[in-house]
């Protein structure tokens, strides 16, 4: 891939997704794009890019984004956002209400919702009268099953503070299992974010985490999901997206709020 080709592709991906690849990522982008060129039966970048650019279905853009974004998930991922949730957002919510509902949308194998449950347990422990629950959904039933089992590799828990690891996990050979007290606080279920009927049942959430999920949707679907999230949030509720995602590129209906630790979108 020439420097000019890289810039064309980078600008296109940026406009479509808000994800920006700097020059130093050229090699990384190149190797993944080459895989996609082969997988789609093209023999050079030019023919692949033209095909990608005019692909009405948007499927290849999604495939390319999948290849370019690390799909790995682990506990306490994007720590600064969690710090914001724990130290700035939760105290604000607790001041106003005693029942807190959080939703991890696109929860994969459960690392995110369990992280949120651990944080809530830590932050809200001892505050009398406050109840909370974490809802965790994914379109993929296999990952939901794994999440319910709650068994994780050392790699998944590598960022969990040692103290929390002792308190919230039980070592099982090479693996770590989430303790039942935390498991029962998280409700896992299958949900398609594009299913209007199912999405309308989702309501009264104070915070939604939907990180690195919407990048896999096309423009129209992303807008629709953003509107469903709007309906699902309480007044003033918050939504966290992945660090490279921008709600403002999808829809202007949420306000961007700047906290000490992170930027968060608010209804």
């Amino acid at each position: 891939m020439t420097a000019e080709e890289f810039i064309k592709l980078r600008d296109f991906i940026y406009r479509k997704t808000g994800i920006y690849f700097e020059e130093r990522k050229k090699y990384y982008v190149e190797s993944r794009v080459e895989d996609r060129i082969k997988a789609t039966g093209h023999d050079n970048f030019r023919s692949y890019f033209t095909w990608l650019r005019f692909d009405v279905t948007g499927k290849e853009l999604q495939e390319l984004i999948n290849a370019l974004t690390v799909n790995e998930t682990y506990f306490f991922r994007e720590y600064y956002q969690l710090k914001c949730f724990a130290e700035e957002i939760l105290p604000e919510i607790v001041e106003k209400k005693s029942s807190i509902r959080v939703w991890s949308a696109g929860c994969s194998t459960g690392e995110e919702p369990y992280t949120l449950a651990i944080i809530m347990e830590e932050m809200l422990e001892g505050i009398s009268g406050v109840t909370w629950e974490v809802h965790a959904t994914d379109i993929n039933t296999e990952v939901i099953e794994k999440a319910e089992v709650g068994l994780y590799s050392q790699r998944s828990v590598r960022l969990v503070p040692e103290e929390y690891k002792m308190r919230y996990f039980v070592a099982k050979g090479e693996f770590y299992e989430i303790v039942p007290e935390v498991k029962k606080k998280v409700k896992f279920y299958q949900l398609n974010l594009m299913d209007a009927t199912a999405m309308r049942k989702m309501s009264g959430f104070d915070v939604i985490f939907c990180r690195n999920v919407l990048i896999y949707f096309d423009d129209a679907s992303r807008r629709q999901v953003a509107l469903y999230f709007y309906e699902a949030l309480t007044e003033g509720g918050y939504i966290f997206l992945g660090h490279s995602e921008s709600m403002s590129r999808i829809t202007p209906i949420f306000k961007l709020r700047r906290f000490k630790n992170a930027f968060v979108y608010q209804k």
Partner: peptide, 14 residues
Amino acid sequence: DEVVREAIVTSLIK
């Protein structure tokens, strides 16, 4: 209303 507008645009695209 900005949100209703967005819903309308989303539907027209759909």
